[in-house]
C-alpha cells in the first residue's frame, strides 16, 4: 500500500528511529517497575541508555581464538532486529516494508539473527558460549511451532499473512471478543516471554552458569559488540510486543497520513506497550524461573492454545 513511495521510505526511517530509540526505554521501564515491586529504588529508567553509550565508547576486546564469525554475529543480529522493526506496523496501519513479506518473513528474519549469534557464540572456545548457544537454539526450536500456530490463527482470520493487511482487517471488523482471539493472544504471550528471554523461561539479570541462557551465549562479548547485542535484543523484545498489539489490539493506530493521526497512533502505541510491559513485569515478579527441562511444558501449553484457537474459529 505504501511501499516504494517516498512516504514509505520516510516512514521506514521514522519507524526504525522510533524503535531504536524506544527499545531501551522498554527495558528500563520494566526494570524500574520490577524494582518497585521488590520495594527497591532500582536504577534510573534511562540507565539502559547510559550503559549503551558507555559500551559503545569502550575498547574492543576480542578473544584470540575468535574469527570473523565472532565479529559478524552481533552485527547481523542487530541488522535483523532492525529489519524486523520495519516489517511490523507501529504507528501507521501499514508496515513500511510490508511489500517485502509478512509474518513468515518476520519469523525468518529473527531466525537469521539468532543463527548468526548462536554460531558466533561457539567461536571463542569458552564453554559458556556453547552452553548458551545450545540452550538458546533448543528453546527457539520449541517456541517456533507455537509461534507459527499462534500467528496462523490470527492471519487466517484476516485472510492474509501480511501484517498490514491483518491490522487493516482487524480495524475494519471492529472490536471482537471471539474466544479464539483470547486463546491465540495467550499462546503468543507465552512465546513472547520465551523469545524475550524473560522469567519464567530465562532470567535476563542472572550470570549464574546453571540458569543463564541468552546471557551465556553473549558472555564473551564486551564493549561495542555487547552494546549491539543488548540493543538488538531490546529491539527484538519491542518488536514482539508490537506484534501482539498489532494482532490483538490495533485500535488507535493511524489510518491516514496526517500529523494528528500519526501522533495519536504513537500515543496509543506507547500506552499499549506500557500495558504489556506491566504484564511482563507482573509475570516476571510473581514467578520463579523454570528449570530448562520444564520449559517444553510451557511451550506445549502455548502450542495447545494456538491449536485450540484455530479449531474453535474454523470448525
Amino acid at each position: 500500500m505504501i511501499d516504494g513511495t517516498p512516504f514509505g521510505l520516510l516512514l521506514a526511517l521514522l519507524q526504525a528511529g522510533i524503535m531504536l530509540a524506544a527499545a531501551p526505554l522498554l527495558r528500563g521501564v520494566i526494570k524500574k517497575m520490577k524494582a518497585s515491586l521488590q520495594t527497591r529504588q532500582g536504577p534510573p529508567v534511562l540507565q539502559v541508555y547510559y550503559d549503551l553509550g558507555k559500551l559503545l565508547r569502550k575498547e574492543r576486546v576480542r578473544s584470540d581464538t575468535a574469527t570473523w564469525v565472532y565479529a559478524a554475529g552481533p552485527r547481523v543480529y542487530f541488522a535483523t532486529a532492525l529489519a524486523a522493526a520495519v516489517l511490523v506496523p507501529v504507528v501507521f496501519a501499514a508496515a513500511p516494508f510490508e511489500g517485502a513479506g509478512g509474518i513468515l518473513l518476520l519469523v525468518g528474519t529473527l531466525a537469521l539473527g539468532r543463527f548468526a549469534l548462536a554460531v558466533a557464540a561457539l567461536d571463542t572456545g569458552s564453554p559458556f558460549g556453547g552452553m548458551g548457544s545450545s540452550r538458546e537454539m533448543t528453546i527457539a526450536a520449541l517456541a517456533e511451532p507455537a509461534l507459527m500456530l499462534g500467528l496462523f490463527a490470527s492471519a487466517l482470520a484476516a485472510g492474509s499473512l501480511g501484517l498490514g493487511e491483518i491490522v487493516r482487517g482487524a480495524l475494519a471488523r471492529g472490536v471482537s471478543f471471539h474466544p479464539s482471539e483470547w486463546l491465540a493472544a495467550a499462546a503468543l504471550f507465552l512465546v513472547l516471554i520465551a523469545e524475550a528471554g524473560r522469567i519464567p523461561v530465562d532470567n535476563p539479570a542472572t550470570h549464574l552458569e546453571l540458569t543463564m541462557i541468552h546471557e551465556a551465549m553473549v558472555l564473551e562479548y564486551s564493549g561495542p559488540d555487547l552494546a549491539l547485542v543488548e540493543w538488538a535484543s531490546s529491539i527484538k523484545e519491542l518488536v514482539f510486543v508490537t506484534l501482539l498489539i498489532d494482532l490483538f489490539g490495533p485500535l488507535g493506530i493511524a489510518t491516514s497520513i496526517t500529523p494528528l493521526a500519526l501522533a495519536m497512533g504513537l500515543l496509543a502505541w506507547l500506552i499499549k506497550v506500557l500495558a504489556l510491559a506491566v504484564a511482563l513485569t507482573l509475570v516476571e515478579s510473581t514467578n520463579a524461573k523454570l528449570r530448562l527441562f520444564r520449559v517444553p511444558e510451557l511451550m506445549a501449553t502455548s502450542l495447545g492454545l494456538g491449536f485450540l484457537a484455530m479449531a474453535i474459529r474454523f470448525l
Binding site: F78, A79, A83, V86, F97, G99, A100, L105, T109, S160
Partner: peptide, 18 residues
Amino acid sequence: RFDQVSPAALAAVVLAGV
C-alpha cells in the same frame, strides 16, 4: 494480497542495518 515475499528487499534492509 494473501502474502508475498521479496528476500532481496530484506537483503537491502539487512545490509543497511549491518
